[in-house]
Design a protein around this nucleic acid. Structure first.
Lengths: 232, 232
DNA sequence: CGTTGGATTGACCTCAGTCAATCAGGGTGG
DNA sequence: CCACCCTGATTGACTGAGGTCAATCCAACG
C-alpha cells in the first residue's frame, strides 16, 4: 500500500493503540485498491473475507429482504466497516457498494483475527469500536421506532447543520434517494417531508438546505442527545 | 450473593473464560437482589453505575422519545444487559424495568471496567458479546425497515415455534402488548395482524398460537437467516 | 360478585407507499 | 452549440398500512 496512507490508518481509534509489530503484520497483508462508483464490494450472506477501511470516497451499506432494499449506513473516510462479521468469522449481514469512486483498504479477516488474538491493546480497541457501533445502531432503532418520518428528517437536518458548523446552511451529504432510504422512507415521501418543513423555515435548493429558524425546527424535531448525538 | 448462583453466572459466555481471580473480584463487589414485577431498574440518560445480569425472571428494555415509548428488548435469564454503556462509562441509552419478579445481579461498572483493563481473556469475551449484540440489533433494524408489520409477526411466530421445538404450538413469551411494541406496532394492530394470518393457518387462543401450515406461513413471512437466525 | 388490566373490535383518519407523469440538470454525441 | 438522453427529483392522484379513539369483552383476582 501507499506509505502516505499509513498515518491515516494508524490514526484510527481501532489501530492507534495496537503494537507496531501487529500493525505491520496487518498492513503487510492488506490490499489498497481504488474502485469506481457504484461497484459492489460485498454481498450479505458472503463469508467475511476482509475487513474494509474506507480511505477516500464513500461506501453505502445496504440490505435486502422480502423483495425490498434499504440503505443501512453510509461510511465515510477514514472508517472501517463490517468488523463484527470479521471477528465472528461469520457471514456479512449487509451488502456494500461504493457510492463514489473510492480508495479502500482490504485486510484479510484471518489476519485481523490473529492480531485480535495476539495483541491485547488491539482487542481492547475493538471493544471500544464495537461498543460505539452498537450504541449507534441502538440510537438508529430508537429513531425509527419512536419518530415519524418528518421528525426523523428534521432531526437529521439539525444534525447535518451541527456537523457542518451550525450556519443554518446544510449541504446534503448524499443523494436525496439515499437519504430517504437511510431514514426509512421513499424518495417521494422525502420530497413531501421537505415541503412539510417549509413552514418551519426549511428551504431546499438542490443539495442545499437552509434552516432559517433552527428553534422552530427543533421544537418540531425534539432532538434528543440519546438518539442524535454522535458521541455519548 | 448466593453461592448456588455462581455457576450460572460463571457459565455465561461473558464470564466463562476470565481468570478466577478477576471473577472473584467481580462477584465480591456485586449485589444480588430480588425485585418485584414492574419495577424500574434504570432510566435512559442515567450514568451507567452497574452492569446487570438477569438470573431469574425477565427484564424489559424500553426507550422514550417524542412523547412515545417502545420496547427495545426482553432480557431473559441468564443474560447481561447494558454492557456497552458500562464499558464506555457513558449514560444508558435504554431504560429497564422488571417484567416479572426477578432476581438480578448488579456489578458496579467500575469493577467491570477494572476487570476489562486487567483481564485479557475477559476483554476478548466482551468483544464476542458486543459483536453478537451488534449483529442482533442490525438484524432487528433490517426487520423493521424491510418488512411490513404482518411479515414481522409471521417471522416472529416462526422463530418462537423453532425455539419451542417446532411443534406448531407456540406459547407467546410475553404480553401481547409487549410483543406488539417489540415488533414495532400497536396492540390493536397486532390483534388485526393475527387475524390477517388466520388464512395462513394461524390460530390464537389467549397466549397460545397454533401454526397449522408452517409452509404457508413461511411463504408469506419469507424467513431469512440473515435476520431471523439467533446465531450467524 | 365487582374491579382491573389486557385483548379485541369497530369506526375513523392519517401517514406513508405506489404508480405514473413531469421536470430539471448534466453529460454525450452529432 | 444544441438536441438528446439519462438519472434523480418532484408532483399529483390514489391506495393501503397502520395509528387513534372509544367501546366492549374477558379472565384473573381480590
Amino acid at each position: 500500500m501507499r506509505s502516505s496512507d499509513l498515518p491515516a490508518v494508524r490514526a484510527l481509534g481501532l489501530f492507534r493503540s495496537m503494537a507496531e509489530a501487529s500493525f505491520e503484520d496487518l498492513v503487510q497483508a492488506a490490499y489498497l485498491q481504488t474502485f469506481p462508483a457504484q461497484l459492489d464490494l460485498i454481498a450479505e450472506g458472503d463469508p467475511a473475507d476482509f475487513l474494509y477501511v474506507v480511505m477516500e470516497g464513500c461506501v453505502e451499506l445496504f440490505a435486502h429482504a422480502n423483495g425490498r432494499e434499504t440503505t443501512m449506513a453510509m461510511v465515510r473516510p477514514v472508517n472501517a466497516f463490517i468488523l463484527a462479521a470479521v471477528l465472528k468469522d461469520a457471514v456479512y449481514l449487509m451488502s456494500a457498494r461504493t457510492a463514489h469512486k473510492s480508495r479502500i483498504l482490504l485486510i484479510p479477516s484471518e489476519n485481523v483475527r490473529e492480531a485480535f488474538a495476539r495483541d491485547d491493546a488491539f482487542a481492547r480497541a475493538i471493544v471500544v469500536e464495537l461498543a460505539n457501533s452498537y450504541r449507534t445502531v441502538v440510537k438508529e432503532q430508537k429513531d425509527l421506532k419512536l419518530r415519524t418520518a418528518v421528525e426523523r428528517l428534521a432531526n437529521r437536518l439539525l444534525r447535518y447543520d451541527a456537523e457542518q458548523g451550525a450556519h443554518g446552511t446544510v449541504t446534503l451529504p448524499h443523494d436525496k434517494r439515499t437519504i430517504a432510504s437511510l431514514i426509512g422512507m421513499t424518495p417521494e415521501n422525502l420530497s413531501r417531508a421537505f415541503n412539510t418543513l417549509k413552514p418551519y423555515g426549511v428551504e431546499v435548493t438542490g443539495p442545499t438546505v437552509t434552516i432559517a429558524d433552527a428553534a422552530a425546527l427543533a421544537k418540531l424535531a425534539q432532538p434528543n442527545p440519546l438518539i442524535d448525538d454522535e458521541t455519548s
